[in-house]
Design a protein around this nucleic acid. Structure first.
Lengths: 258, 258
DNA sequence: ACAAAAGTGTTCGATCTACACCCATGT
DNA sequence: ACATGGGTGTAGATCGAACACTTTTGT
């Protein structure tokens, strides 16, 4: 739980702990049962929906700050996390509309026009993907809500976050062909149909079911287990798991999937 | 020419004009006659070689700041310019080794320990490519030298710039397959051998001469002209030029070359 | 036996690669 | 005519999309 003192300390003294003028924003994609969602937060003071984001501690690497941020919002650790672009247009935040009075009322502390939070900020964009059913959402101290939205039905976002989402989605979909994916989104043991559905959902398009697994199996990323799953009056599908060693190597060196 | 007053003003008041804590560094690749070079500057105060870089004016977009920087160092405008990664490790600049005395002597103005230039900085990396024979080099106010180095024979670089160069080269080579390239590196009219040599040099590997141009021509990026060039006792090669319209479209939407 | 879903196999065409070979040019 | 670099053509291998077909399962 965040106390009022913590909020005040962050607003008044945050620039000592964090690097001013630099922030990061995370497009956290959530997958579960063929649905693709995006995590958004509702900011206390500007009212609208935004990507979750935060500041970088002076002791942190960028990716560590992003991981901390994702962990705080979702409770989930160790995600696939990728920088996709850095945003720095001078008018991206529209601070000329800043209302000192309003911010003071809402946050319970006077935020002056020259507060470090109201100054020009360059933001580093990260994206990550997780299974949204495993997450426990938690708004940050500057927001009042934190929810999953269907990717095809997003509200208009504050700042330049619409553009960020477009770029994140674009980069994520390119990466799908160059990195293995799914380790955190599928159960330990899964069927080909399940991983096929995952790829289709993330890519937002159909993939031929019969051609799809060939490459993954040929690359040795998938291990066929000696187990099947019973799914009622139908043929029982084989279970597969990832070959973690090859998976991690593919994460590091990249692969080509079609 | 940069005057001593300008240097002092930049050091003492630069944080009003520029966004503090954020910089950019440019890996400027230079090509000419099958040689690939990289532009480096020699910093006045830390002595070693670095990538050229600078700060972002509070009125500038990131890419505008990068373009200004490249223009200042090389005199060249309108280059292919791409963000490749943002760097923010807390110890990337090693300011714990900062020597107030030394900096003061070298720069002719007292640089205090809490000067904005000595504080933690996140740097946005850009790369670009140009024909190095057309450039007119110019060190910046903080450097004493500015030179092209052969890409295979670079000195050790200051800060995290070795890593930046690796990442820039890697990204540039991936982009070669997804964007057209050469508009600023080749004469208005050029032969297939010339553009072939350009690609081989940038990629650092051999490409089959006979297969290479087919894709470019099939995509309509190249226009075969009704002219030839006389090259002594050999068959006269055809001249080609870029179809600027298709070229620009390919720049925007991307292409696939093999 | 059947419906439904899993999984396999095969064909066709596009594309890439390697390499042989022909062409043009000035001396 | 010949040496040299420019340029073309083609056979074989590889890859990927499409789709028909077979297998498995519980009722």
């Amino acid at each position: 739980m965040v106390t009022q003192e913590q909020i005040e300390d962050f607003i008044l003294n945050g620039h000592k702990e964090y690097v001013p003028h630099v922030s990061l924003d995370c497009a956290i994609f959530g997958y579960h049962e063929q649905q693709l969602k995006l995590l958004l937060i509702k900011h206390k003071a500007v009212f609208g929906w935004c990507l979750p984001g935060g500041y970088i501690k002076r002791t942190e690497k960028l990716v560590e700050a992003a991981a901390r941020n994702v962990k705080e919002r979702t409770g989930v650790d160790n995600l696939f996390l990728q920088q996709f672009k850095t945003f720095g247009d001078p008018n991206r935040a529209k601070f000329d509309e800043f209302d000192e009075e309003k911010w003071g009322q809402i946050l319970g502390v006077k935020v002056s026009r020259n507060n470090w939070l109201i100054d020009q900020t360059i933001s580093v964009g990260f994206y990550s993907i997780t299974d949204f059913s495993r997450t426990v959402l938690q708004p940050d101290m500057m927001s009042i809500d934190c929810e999953w939205f269907d990717i095809d039905n997003l509200p208009a976002l504050e700042f330049d976050h619409d553009e960020m989402v477009r770029e994140a989605l674009h980069t994520m979909r390119i990466h799908l062909y160059h990195y293995p994916i799914g380790y955190n989104m599928l159960p330990e043991k899964f069927t080909l149909t399940e991983i096929h559905a995952l790829y289709e959902t993330l890519l937002g398009k159909k993939l031929d079911i019969s051609n799809f697994p060939k490459k993954l199996i040929a690359l040795g990323l998938l291990i066929k287990l000696d187990e099947k799953r019973s799914i009622g009056p139908h043929r029982s599908p084989h279970l597969y798991s990832f070959d973690k060693e090859r998976y991690d190597e593919a994460l590091k060196n990249g692969v080509v999937l079609s």
